[in-house]
Structures are given as structure tokens and as C-alpha cells.
Design a protein around this nucleic acid. Structure first.
Lengths: 134, 134
DNA sequence: TCCCTGTCGATGCAATTGCATCTATATGGA
DNA sequence: TCCATATAGATGCAATTGCATCGACAGGGA
């Protein structure tokens, strides 16, 4: 817990220092970028990014207000919507990654060998729910 | 990040289900219990529990309002105070631990062997700041 | 067709967090 | 002694989070 807190905190600090939005924005933009032009439904986002429903709802509102995503009505479900990343959103994601990726390599890559990193990933994977056994 | 989020979330859920306060309360009560009758100054607490200063200040106010800690003026520094855990605070800590400890064994102890747990602790220790090299 | 129940997403309200700043005291130097 | 600076801790205000609930639509059975 302590380690993950420290890592997140330092990464958030680096983002703030660069005048960039928080890590959660990266997560969402990343998933949406992966999803491509088809976009994603908010409920799909929810189980990918480990944020509560109301949190996703509000984060999407902020992303939309900043022009980073757009919401499209979905034809076969009147309740829903599809969220798609915009070019500006891709650009922001790229800038976030420049800082985020750098933080990861400094905080992790530089401290552990690749064997150790793999071992760490394997052990943590076993703690995931659902567990990843490999 | 994902794993630690899940672990914290599940542990918090277990605490809530038991009508208990959040994990941060445990951390502080734990440190104060370790510190014994001498208590701790708030600033000492801050670097032990990885909470921001204003966060500690407010958490202590809540703990005091609940009668779990008491604040004593400190003779040789008029700005400061000493925070000491009360019997009721020790009791609460005990009840928190019953749930917290159980969560740890279910979420970690049951999923990894003791060799793996030790390996995990060693790897994470290397990521700490300051790093623990052993 | 008409409910009943379930799912999608939004939101009012209270609690918490983050940020900046403030007050009060301490400490060291001119 | 007096002042400048530093440290301990609190707090006003805005943003975010958590909780509960709501409104809207979907889907299935009577």
C-alpha cells in the first residue's frame, strides 16, 4: 500500500508540474484510444478502469467539456451513449504518456531488473481479482 | 496500481460492512499505539503514515471528537501538541485489526506462499523511497 | 398491451481532499 | 533586544468523492 501510494503520488506530482490533468484521465483516454473509432459505452469503461460508476460519469463530463471525448447516442439502446476520443484527446493522451511513461521508468524500470519486474508482475497478477495464474 | 486499488477497496468494503471507520484511522491508531503513553507529535505522525499535513490535522480532529485520541499541550514548544491514544482508541484499533488482518490473509496470505510473499515484499521494498536494499 | 424488474447513466447532498494561506511560536543573527 | 525566517498546526474555499437515489429506457412474462 505504501509503495503504491508513493508511486502514484510522485507520478501525479510530475503531471501537475507539467500542467497536465490527473492519472485517471490517462486511464480513460488510453482505453478509448485502444477502442478506436467505435468508442466505448461508459459501462464498458467502468470495468476496465476500476472507477466507480458515478466517477466515470463525471470524469466523462469533464473530458467532454475539455473537448477530449465526444458522446454519441447509440441507436439500439435509448438509455446509452458511445464515448469516442477526439484528436485533441489523443494529443492529450500522448502528452500524458510522455510524463507518465517517464515516471514509470524512473520509479520502476531503473530500480529493478527486467527479471525482477517480470517476477513482480507475476506475483501481483496472482493477487488480482480475478487472479491471473499464467 | 490496479492490484493495490482492488486490495484497498475490498478492505474498505469489509470495514464498512462491519460499521468501522476507514483504513487511515487504523494507520494512525496503530502508530499511536506503538508510540505508547508518550504519544506522538502530529509532525511525527505525518512521515509515518504518508498522509498530507492537513489530512493528519483533520483526521486527528475526528479521532479526538470520537474520543479515540487526546491532545496534550507540550511544555517545551508552545506551537505543538502531543497526541496520545485513549483506551477507547485501543479498543477501536483492535476491532479494526480484526477485519483488516482477516482481509490481508484472505487477499494475500491465501493466494501466495510464504516464499512468494517474502519475494514480493523484497521487490516492493526496492521501490520504496528511500529504497530498502536489504 | 401492461406491468414488473433490471440496467444505463446522471445527480443532489454530505463528507473528504487539495491547495493556499493563516496564526502562533521558535530560532538565529545583527 | 529586535527582526527575519522557519516550523507546527489549523482552516477557508474550491474541487472531488462517496452514497443514495432518480429518471429513462429495455426486456420479459401475464
Amino acid at each position: 500500500m505504501r509503495v503504491s501510494r508513493q508511486l502514484v503520488e510522485k507520478t501525479e506530482d510530475a503531471l501537475k508540474a507539467g500542467g497536465l490533468p490527473p492519472l485517471a484521465w490517462y486511464d480513460v483516454l488510453h482505453e478509448l484510444a485502444e477502442a478506436g473509432e467505435g468508442g466505448l459505452r461508459p459501462f464498458e469503461l467502468i470495468d476496465r478502469v476500476l472507477l466507480a460508476q458515478y466517477n466515470v460519469s463525471r470524469l466523462l463530463a469533464r473530458l467532454e467539456a475539455d473537448g477530449l471525448v465526444e458522446r454519441l447516442p447509440v441507436s439500439d439502446d435509448g438509455r446509452g451513449q458511445t464515448v469516442r476520443i477526439t484528436p485533441s484527446g489523443r494529443e492529450t493522451r500522448r502528452r500524458l504518456w510522455a510524463v507518465y511513461g517517464k515516471a514509470i521508468s524512473e520509479l520502476m524500470g531503473d530500480r529493478l531488473s527486467s527479471e525482477e519486474l517480470e517476477m513482480l508482475a507475476r506475483l501481483l497478477g496472482r493477487l488480482r481479482d480475478p487472479p491471473i495464474m499464467e
